[in-house]
Simulated assay, not measured.
Amino acid sequence: MRTVNEISKITSISVRTLHYYDKIGLLKPTAYTEAGYRLYDDKALETLQQILFFREFDMPLKDIKATMERPDFDREAVLNSQRAILEVKKSRLERLISSIDGILKGENEMDFEVFSRDEIKELYDTMVSNMESGQVDAVVRKYGSLEKYEEQFIEKAGSGRAQKNLQKVTEWYGGRKEALDAAKNPAGSGVMDAYQKRIDKIYRKIAAKAGTDVNTFEVKELIGEYDFVSKQLYQMKDVTELLLEMADAFKKSGPLKESMEEQYGPGAPDYIAEAVKAFYGR
């Protein structure tokens, strides 16, 4: 058994805070001394550690208490989810540090000539080889032949605007090689469809939380799953910037927002966008 002062020294949590946790029923002492002083055993210390993990995600105390009192509370599952969220944050911090290192070394010059003509031609060949017969027929009807389509594809892909977009995609993937590898090795249509359906389910679960605080653990857990599935779908190591840009698109008035509101309900696009931004600390 440990006294409240000993627990405070071990965890750096003030005695006053521990007294407050007792008062609201979040962390009750295991026992009391004859003089009425609080005592805590190892199990209580584990509970406090779990509370501190929740607090790391800025989760309100009332939500922590409600979550930990749920009959189906699975400590291991929650810890795994929290670990996944922290891994995302770690990846983002590492990327930011790498960017700062590049700036300090003078290596952050923007080169809009992202892919050479040969690489664009390689991307075109890969894209066409993965087309279904119906898609090929549609292209031929529109452009007259695959050769003419190839000419226009390469010309447009080499334009300044297209190269800027390719630069953005390259940043999402973490480098030219990674972006090229992803383009040349796309997931099969069945796999893509499965990932899209899973994201649809995640959107529906998030939309069902609309009106609640986006900083609750339940919402952050769903965005953590969205992050994980998106990495598989887009074959990216870090989807932070991609999902943030998508979140901005969700909030803008237009066909995308209208379509999402029709699918997930009024206000859903804005709520999903805010949840994404809160998850990544933006």
Rank of each mutant, 00 (worst) to 15 (best):
W172Y: 08
S189H: 11
V219K: 08
A183H: 06
G224P: 06
A187P: 12
T212K: 07
N215R: 08
F228I: 08
K168H: 13
L180R: 04
G188T: 05
E178F: 03
W172H: 04
Y195R: 14
Q235L: 09
W172R: 06
E171D: 14
Y195M: 14
T216L: 13
D193G: 09
Y173E: 01
V191R: 08
S230D: 11
A210I: 10
L233K: 14
V229P: 09
A207G: 02
K177V: 02
Y234P: 13
K220R: 08
P186G: 03
M236D: 03
S189C: 06
Y226F: 08
L180W: 00
K164M: 15
K205G: 00
A210M: 12
L166H: 09
E218M: 11
V229E: 11
T170K: 05
K205Y: 00
A194T: 09
L180V: 02
G175T: 03
A210R: 14
K197N: 10
A194W: 15
I206N: 03
L222P: 07
V219N: 02
G224L: 09
L222H: 01
R198E: 14
D181S: 01
Y195P: 14
F217C: 05
V219L: 10
G224D: 06
R198W: 02
Q196A: 14
N185P: 08
